[in-house]
Simulated scan of single mutants.
Amino acid sequence: MPMGAVAARDLAYGYGGAEMLGRFFMPEGQGERPGILVLHGAHGLDGFILSRAECLAGFGHAVLAVDLWGGRELISDPAAIGPRLGAFAGHRDMWMGRIEAARAALIAQPGVDNSRIGALGYCFGGTGVLEFARKGGALKGVVSFHGGLDMVEDDWSGQAGASVLVCTGAADPMARQEDRLRVEAGMSAANVAWETNLYGGAKHAFTEPDRPGQPPFAGFDARAERRSWAAMRKFFQDVLA
């Protein structure tokens, strides 16, 4: 639960003719706040993501829960997930452009310190924050919770100095060892300040409540969820200080 009082409101923004409807959370009180973007996974900007964003705001951050799909669309049909992810992976300028539009919307809000902006993402959102940092997104740091490392490209030479925390499960087929090592090598070659937390036995989507019809490669893991959340808190306390 949030530690302090938080005001919340919808925040509309757009990119390339698409209209997005994020949710902005701001702690009550005076002074500029560091900002955090929270990117959802394949299912869209649902109650789980909104609750995580509100909780982060309760710790003193200005938070924008990002609407990546547009129109606050939620995807419940598993058959629709693959084509949607493929459409974004196949049009990375659009994918990154929507994240940048969210960043611009966040830093335009009164009381947000635009020199201290981070991002975290879940599942496809975790992939997105890594790609955004890799491509030079103007962020201090990013955290990926069980992101698909198989979709993260190798060349980090265009990154702009963001620190990186990867929280991933050892039993996640979307983050196999070869992809994890490949991504880590790319970050090391570009002198990125990175760290990986690897949770033994944890599957994909280990932070999220189990859903009806969930695939066997995904599942909630209480220990990994608890430890990754604590690691994220410490990471942002450091890089957004």
Rank of each mutant, 00 (worst) to 15 (best):
V152A: 04
R226T: 13
I107W: 07
A5D: 13
M96K: 08
A105D: 06
N197A: 03
H146T: 02
G125C: 01
E184W: 04
A8E: 11
R103T: 11
A18S: 15
L74M: 10
R52K: 13
G118A: 06
P215F: 05
V6E: 13
F59W: 15
H91S: 15
K140Q: 08
F217N: 04
H146V: 02
H61W: 11
A62H: 08
D46H: 06
G128M: 00
G118V: 01
G82Q: 10
D10N: 05
A5Q: 10
L56P: 06
V129T: 01
G111M: 07
F132Y: 06
D238Y: 10
V112E: 04
T196C: 03
W229T: 08
F88W: 09
G161Y: 14
F145V: 01
A171L: 02
G16P: 08
A57F: 09
F25M: 10
V192M: 04
R176H: 02
S144W: 00
G128V: 00
S157F: 11
A190P: 09
E184Q: 07
V38E: 01
M1V: 15
R52A: 08
T168P: 00
D238Q: 13
G118P: 02
M94F: 14
D172K: 00
M1A: 14
L181V: 09
Y13V: 14
P216T: 10
F132G: 00
L39M: 07
